[in-house]
Nucleic acid binder design. Structure first.
Length: 548
DNA sequence: TGCGTAATAT
DNA sequence: GATATTACGC
């Protein structure tokens, strides 16, 4: 280790006195560079020969904190060898070369940064950051098996940084920043030398000032915020725009890309899509909060990236939801249980609760109105008391723009004004109607979700396995109160005469939706009946519908 | 801690 | 305006 964290702690006036090894074939160029560095109170040792430089390093490793090596077309191999040999020394490559492969190779061989010429003072001034980074990384590596918090390690270094920390508050902000950085670093790398120090920070952080207690929105990307570049940020007050990102190439860039990709990784959940980057998992909220000021002050785009994802209640997802509700029964359908039944990864109890809320609202407020409209007179003799007044929501309005359901569909039956027959309970509003909570009519080949056509339970098992609305004929009074009660045995097993009456009515009035509890006839039986009646030509749009 | 509902955000 | 999310009381 060239320079340890402890060394830094004891280093007054850091980075003054930073010892720089300068390896440059071109003596005039070297002299110019040396002059600049010395003006920054750095101690420069110039070499024009790789072997001499390596020898010096070998003899007195402590003599150098950082190396600046000139690469040109004639000495690339030499430079590469230097990198390979002096791995422990943070080495910055400088060059006029714009060849990406060369740059990449340097970085791959351990160069902490590749600076294109001309070298601005800003670039040179900040070379010390690589020393800090290296020291910190190495220290952490040594402590990899200890529980020593990274914050403890780095925070003491802060006072060594510029005098611009004027107040405790400001320092705290910066401290937090650094600690977060450390944590991020910790996530991304375990092996220190594997990853070079961050590229010259000021080049990417715009004019963000340390003493600006507020976190300005001067960064352009989240990844920059989250990368480890803020170490020594205080040094980057005077930033020039002349050599921005394109001038600086280092693996940090690569790291950041990967890191960002991970952070922005989307959940791939059936029926979900993300409107913003980030995890669907709302637990990330905590992570965001942890970012505190930074998170709160990200640019608008970044903020959007961190926005909690909205769940897109697609038809498929809603179907799962309703199935879960059906399975549990309305009174048992609480968010946590629905969540369990749905088994949709990434979906949270909150998501379900919200959806359940809407679901209930629709049941409670819209359906009764619809029912009133359809059955204005409660004493209507045609109104069978055995029809539930509040059927479960069958066809929500949302996602009408989604593709047709791939799920099994119910056949159409009866003739509707629009020419589309439909199965369903008479107590369901006709779902082709334009009420906004209903599915908008499909242009052709009307399909409906399975819940649009509840069927009589085929078993008489435990009540809890069946939703009231589907398990027979819930008591109207109970439903009207908004308190759905388990149906009585009568509800579960209506008298035969009642069933007969319902069936008779269904047969005599085929244009009405089927009441709850009646299954549509099978394809075969329909075709057989039509054939028996001498009807052999089936309209294509009916035939196209998938009969079950 | 989880639920239901109202308020707020998108 | 519709819907999702969040806040809040229970």
């Amino acid at each position: 280790m060239v320079c340890t964290a402890n060394d830094l702690l004891e280093w007054k006036d850091f980075p003054k006195g930073l010892r720089v090894l300068l390896l440059n074939d071109d003596s005039s160029s070297a002299a110019e560079l040396r002059s600049k560095l010395e003006n920054m109170d750095y101690i420069v040792s110039t070499f024009c020969n790789k072997n001499e430089a390596l020898s010096a390093i070998s003899n007195k490793p402590e003599s150098f904190h950082v190396a600046i090596v000139e690469v040109n077309t004639s000495n690339t191999d030499e430079s590469f060898k230097f990198l390979e040999t002096a791995k422990h020394l943070p080495t910055i490559m400088t060059s006029n070369i714009h060849c990406l492969s060369t740059i990449m190779k340097c970085i791959a061989l351990g160069a902490v940064e590749f600076l294109r010429k001309p070298l601005s003072e800003d670039k040179l001034r900040n070379i010390w950051q690589h020393v800090v980074h290296k020291a910190y990384i190495a220290e952490r590596s040594d402590l990899s098996e200890s529980v020593k918090p990274t914050k403890e390690l780095v925070v003491p270094m802060l006072p060594l940084q510029p005098e611009k920390n004027e107040s405790g508050t400001k320092l705290k902000v910066e401290t937090d920043n650094v600690s977060r950085i450390c944590e991020n670093d910790h996530e991304q790398s375990v092996s220190s030398d594997k990853y070079p120090a961050p590229s010259t920070p000021q080049l990417k952080h715009g004019g963000r000032k340390l003493d600006d207690g507020d976190c300005n929105e001067q960064t352009n990307s989240t990844s920059e915020k989250e990368s480890g570049e803020q170490i020594g940020e205080s040094k980057s007050v005077e930033t020039t725009c002349e050599n921005r990102v394109a001038d600086t190439v280092s693996l940090s860039e690569t790291q950041k890309v990967g890191q960002t990709a991970i952070k922005e990784e989307e959940y791939s959940v059936e029926g979900f899509k993300s409107e913003s980057n980030g995890s669907l998992n709302p637990e990330n909220k905590d992570a965001r909060n942890d970012l505190g000021c930074d998170a709160e002050n990200l640019s608008k785009g970044s903020r959007a990236n961190r926005k909690k994802m909205k769940v897109d209640w697609t038809q498929e997802l809603h179907k799962k939801f309703v199935q879960a509700v059906e399975q549990l029964g309305l009174d048992q359908a609480i968010p946590s249980r629905i969540l369990e039944v749905m088994k949709v990864e990434g979906l949270t109890r909150h998501n379900v609760a919200s959806h359940l809320q809407k679901y209930r609202m629709q049941r409670r407020h819209i359906l009764p109105k619809e029912e009133e409209r359809r059955w204005p007179n409660p004493r209507d003799p045609n109104r069978s008391p055995y029809y539930p007044r509040n059927p479960v929501m069958a066809f929500p309005s949302y996602h009408s723009n989604h593709a047709f359901p791939s799920a099994p569909i119910y056949p159409v039956w009866g003739r509707q004004p629009a020419g589309f027959p439909v199965w369903g309970s008479r107590s369901y509003p006709m779902w082709q109607q334009s009420e906004n909570w209903l599915w908008k009519p499909y242009p052709a080949g009307i399909y409906a979700d399975a819940w649009g056509c509840p069927v009589m339970p085929t078993t008489h098992g435990a009540y809890s396995s069946l939703p009231q609305s589907f398990s027979g004929f819930p008591r109207v009074d109970a439903v009207d109160n908004g308190n759905v009660q388990p149906p009585s045995s009568f509800d579960l097993h209506p008298a035969e005469e009642v069933i007969d009456e319902v069936v008779r009515e269904a047969i005599s009035k085929p244009w009405l939706p089927l009441p709850l509890g009646l299954k549509p006839p099978s394809t075969e039986s329909v075709l057989a009946e039509l054939s028996r009646q001498g009807i052999s030509n089936i309209p294509p749009h009916i035939n196209a519908a998938r009969f079950q």
